[in-house]
Structures are given as C-alpha cells and as structure tokens.
Design a protein around this nucleic acid. Structure first.
Lengths: 348, 348
DNA sequence: GGTTAGCACTCGCAAACGTTCAGTGCTAAA
DNA sequence: TTTAGCACTGAACGTTTGCGAGTGCTAACC
C-alpha cells in the first residue's frame, strides 16, 4: 500500500514532468513539495513508487518519469479537474459567434475552437443519428439531365447530392415517385426508411414507374449520407508539435486515419454505455495502434432526446490533465446549450 | 562561355544529385560520364561551372551541388522531357475511372492522382470562370424556415447553400423574385450578373417585394461561391518527406496556405499570358516566401472555349525534372480530354 | 593549349576519450 | 522513520584523433 506522501510525490512528479518534460529528481521534488522532508526520504518514496510500477527511470541514474500505469492511477484517483477560466469560457463563446445553418457547422466549429484553445487535436462527433427521422425529400431538376436530390431530417440537417439522369426520364414518373416517398416514408426513423427501401417500397414504385431502379439508387445514396456519422477534426497540425522527434510516418498514419471516413474513428470516440462524463484513454488502451504513445480525452454531451454526441482531445501522454478535463467539461455544457438552442427551431 | 563538356558535367551533376541527394565529386562524375576524361579535367570544368555560379560546394573540400541558378540554366537549356511511361498513362486513366457529377470532382481527383503518381504535392485549379454564364437559379423550401438556394452555371457546375429565412416570408413574393432572376439574369456571364445586382435588379425587385434585402443577400452569397476559384490540393502530407530536416514551422505555414481560400495560391498557380505550356519556378522566383527552397512545376490545360485551368506540382528543388515535366505534359492532355468530354453534355 | 598524374591540403564525420553533473542506492546514525 | 553522507552510474558535452572524399595546384605530357 502506498502512503499519503508517496501519492503526493507521484502527483508532483506528474505535475512537474507535464510542465517541463524533463525527468524529475529527488532534489527538485524536495523544493516543490508542500511538506518538508529530505531528498533521501523522497528517494525512498520514489523507490516504492517505482516498485509499484507507477514511475520509471529513463536510465539507471536518472530522475523519474510517470509510467502509463502511473498516469492511469493518477487519473483514476488523484486528479482534481480545474474549472475552466473565465477567459476560456469567453473564448468558447466568442468562437461560437455567428450564425449556423446546419448542426454539422456547429460541430465542425467546435473542433476548431477546442483545438485553438488547447493546441492539441480536437475531434468532434455530432449527436447520434439513432432516432433521426426523415422529414422531407426533394428532387430539383436543373436542366441538362442534372438533378439535385435533397433530404431533410428532423434535426434540421440537410444533405444533398447531384446526379445525372440517364437519357430520357419521364418527369411525371419522378414526380409520382417523390410523392410516394413523402407519403410513405416521411416521419419514419432513418433506419426504418432504409428497411422499407428493401421491402415494400420498390413494389409500390413499380406501379407508377417503368424502371424505379435509378430513382431508388439516388434516394438510397442520399439516405446513406444522411445516416452517416461525420466527425470533424481541428488542429491536426498540432500533432506535429508533440510528435516531431518521433518519425514522420506516424504523423502520416494518424493523418490518414482522420481523412479516411471509413476508419475506426467512430469506434475510437463513439459513445459508450452509461455516460461516464469525461474519460481519458492512454497508450495501449487506444485501439488503433498508431496512437499508442498518445492520450485521448473524450467527453459526451447530450442534447435532450436528440441523442448524445462526443468531443475529444488527442494529445501527448503528458497533457495537463486537470486543466484539460475541466475545459472539456465546460465545453460540453456550452455545446449542449448551443445545440439545444438550435434544435428548438425544429421541435415545435 | 561554357564548353559542351562543361554543360555535360552540369547535366550529370544534376542527374546524380537528384538521384542520391549527395554532393557529386569529380571521381563519381568520371565514372558516370559518357566521355572519358580524367578527374582532374573534370575538376577544371567544375571550377568553371562554379565561377559561372551554376554549382556550389557545401564546404571548401566537398563535392558540388547544383545552385538555383544552375537548375534555372538546366531547365532553360538542357532538360529533355521524358515521355510518360505506359504505366503512368494507365495509372492516370485508372485514377479517373468512375463517374463524376461535377467538374470540381474531376479537378479534385486530378490532384489526388497526380500526388499519388509523383509522391509530391499536387495543386489543381478548374477552368477559368471568366466567361461562365448563369443558367439557372432555384430556391427550394424545406420547411422550418429553411431554404436551399441552388445556382447552376453553363459548365454544369452547381453550388448550393442552406439558409434560414427570418420569421414570416411571403412565398409568393419569393416565387416572383426567383422568376425575375431567371428572366433577367439567366444567360448572362457571372460578372455581368454581379454588376446588375448592384444596378437595376434591386429596383425591379422592389416592385414585387416589400423587402428584397434578404433575398438579395442569399442570391449574392451563392453567386459569389459560384464565381470563386477553388483549388484542390492532393498529397499535402508528402511535404513532410522532403522538408523533414528543416523545421516544422515551415510545414505548418505551407499547410495553412492551402487551407486558406483567400491566400495567394491563385496568384501562385494562376494562368499566365501566352500559354507557356509546362513551366518551372524555383526558389526565390516563388512568391510566398515560405516556398523559397522548393520548386513548383505548373502546366495549363485548355478545354476549348471553356477557358484554361492549371495543374501544378510542388516539390523539392531536386526533383527529377525531365520525368515530372513529361508526366505533367501527359496529364494535362488526359485531363483536357476528360473535361472536354464532360462539357460536351452541356454544349448542345 | 588542353589534358593528365601526383601531391599537399581541407573539411566533415565518426569513434574514442575525459570531464562534468544530476541523480541514485545504500549505510549508519539520529 | 527520517536524515546526512558517500560511492556509484550514465547521459551529455567537449576535445582529440584518424579517416576519407574531395579539391586546387603544379609540372609533365600529347
């Protein structure tokens, strides 16, 4: 069992190492610790901490650095979140200044604000689309066989895509098809819409259209887009600040993780059961192996019954956790407020 | 005046340095040169080249590296473009496989193909919008005060943007406004449309609308988007490969150059008078100072009377120019073909 | 006069070496 | 349990040394 003083030493080692990035020696600790004991005493405590696997030496006669296990212990037991400063709150609010036409714009902006504020990399994910409903579908002919398909969901999100229609299409038929979609599918959750698209809808369309395949393709395509979870990354370049000594390949790999929509980002920062508030994952705990000497702080935010979304900060293992946790906590609240406000336009 | 052999030496120095990245000594040159002279002779030639400022030493007893001036001379007088290999041609064609709904998609894809093929950074710019004409304007109400405005130009490009209308709007009025736009402005070049928007159109709208300001804002906004020249960047991460030894700040600066739409990229790779075909700019010749130890190869492509666009490769000064110039030359042709093909749908 | 062999010289680079210094573990005394 | 003292360790840094690639110069050669 570790004594109270030993934990104090651990805490101070982490604080100092976070600040300076240098291994911490017993003398430094003696000067910084609130209690007054000699460096020899501290050395004994450090030995105990090392035996417990919480700190480690870089070489046989060096100061100590926190180990992953040490951080884990610190985060689980010792860390005291620091409330966000008024300056930070102001910066967040100012960052959100301006008008947004889509939720995604707010979510994307969140990533920007967070990364600017922290100088780390921020990843944000919009509110879950689980109970998203279809509220409208339009197809606008633009001449030259071009058609824009627009799909609206009950959270006010809009996705659109351009298509080129093959040769001759009967615009009356398309008109009818759109009416069928709006009659049969509007108001249903997107999941159910997708299911019906495999089920009775094609048969229904066949009654009015000679070949509903093209139409179904278009609709299915836009629907898929609307149901896709899009994440936003801000401050990706900051990665280079804390990875510069290690090799470039790593940076490249992480970048392509961000660019690849099909990647496991969702798995990485997706919501977990039983909202744990702000959560920190470290080193090996992170699933894509590239991230294994980094640290990820995730936080969920909830927007009433519009589901919950996620915000996350990716940074070096030696982040100032107490500050970052406090900041993320403040941010999630602010973001939830914004989104609730935004949604209220669509809730009547 | 430089002798024929001296130029041969210069050419070989550039070739070897491009390949190995190491300063080239007289013995190496002796082994590689097609003519047989002793290393001492070559040393004399190198001295002449150095006095002409075409090559330089990294230190007093090192081999020589080409100077910027040397590259300039090489590019102006010596380089022989190597035709693209069948493999490269095939890779380009395969890269363009698939169907595109917008010109911008083709242009963006070009940047991707080029960067994959070269491992440098590719920048592409769509055909000039100088003589682009407005062919249609739509506004689609989506419920909840949301409206999507869609603008179509005669090259088939479509831009759209979502707006939230303030409180109560008379849909009849909007209907009329749209009709006025379509009657008065469709068919005109975008520049002229913008001018008329400052001129007689507002007065006309006033006849039918109580307050045309909101409508004008929306239309102006979308118009601006349609007229904006968008450039696409592929393989930006490749920058790190040839800038890794120099500092990270530079990479960041260049990245933000790409992200900033208002930046001088247009000035950098914008078309120049009297189509010079493939052109290389080096070091100090490049306008944003950040790029001053890099090299930019630009090439224009023209698409009949739809104007000309630009493709460019950004890389280290020691690029294999003959290969890259040949490749870019092949690419511009391929791209022009694709776009001409694409445009043919809108030309009837 | 252009070309070549020979030679002294220069400089970067890497290994070898010594010094310094921050920090440790251990022991014995308080 | 805490502390002072001491021997020990290993990284970091500067100096020295040798090596090798490469140059410029000179004198001889064709």
């Amino acid at each position: 069992m570790l004594t109270k003083r030993q934990l104090l030493v651990l805490k101070e080692i982490i604080r100092s190492f976070t600040e300076t990035g240098q291994p911490v020696g017993s003398k430094t600790l003696m000067a910084e610790l609130p209690i007054h004991v000699s460096s020899a005493t501290i050395r004994n405590d450090m030995k105990a901490l090392e035996e417990a696997g919480l700190i480690a030496k870089t070489h046989s006669s060096s100061g100590r650095v926190p180990s992953t296990k040490g951080y884990r212990y610190y985060l689980d037991n010792l860390v005291e979140p620091a409330a966000a400063t008024p300056y930070e709150i102001a910066a967040i609010q100012q960052g959100f200044g301006g008008h947004y036409y889509k939720i995604d714009e707010i979510v994307a902006q969140s990533a920007r604000i967070l990364s600017n504020l922290t100088n780390y990399t921020a990843i944000t994910l919009g509110p879950e689309v689980a109970n998203l409903k279809l509220t409208g579908f339009r197809m606008v002919p633009l001449g030259n066989h071009q058609v824009m398909a627009i799909l609206v969901t009950n959270n006010g999100n809009v996705v659109n895509q351009l298509f080129t229609l093959p040769g001759a299409v009967d615009s009356d038929e398309v008109e009818k098809a759109i009416r069928i979609v709006n009659d049969q599918l509007v108001g249903l959750p997107l999941g159910q819409v997708a299911r019906k698209l495999q089920g009775d809808v094609p048969a229904l369309l066949f009654k009015y259209m000679t070949s509903p395949k093209g139409f179904l393709d278009i609709f299915g395509n836009v629907l898929k887009q609307a149901a896709a979870e899009r994440f936003y990354v801000g401050g990706r370049l900051n990665l280079m600040d804390y990875l510069d000594d290690s090799d470039v390949r790593k940076v490249k790999q992480i970048f392509s993780l961000f660019d690849d929509d099909t990647s496991d980002i969702n798995q990485l920062i997706g919501p977990v059961e039983g909202d744990p508030g702000v959560r920190v994952q470290l080193g090996q705990e992170l699933t894509p192996d590239v991230l294994d000497d980094l640290s990820l702080i995730t936080a969920s935010y909830s927007v009433g019954d519009h589901g919950t979304g996620m915000i996350a900060l990716l940074g070096p293992t030696q982040m100032p956790y107490s500050k970052m946790i406090g900041l993320l906590d403040a941010f999630r609240e602010e973001l939830a407020k914004r989104l609730t406000d935004y949604y209220s336009h669509f809730d009547q």
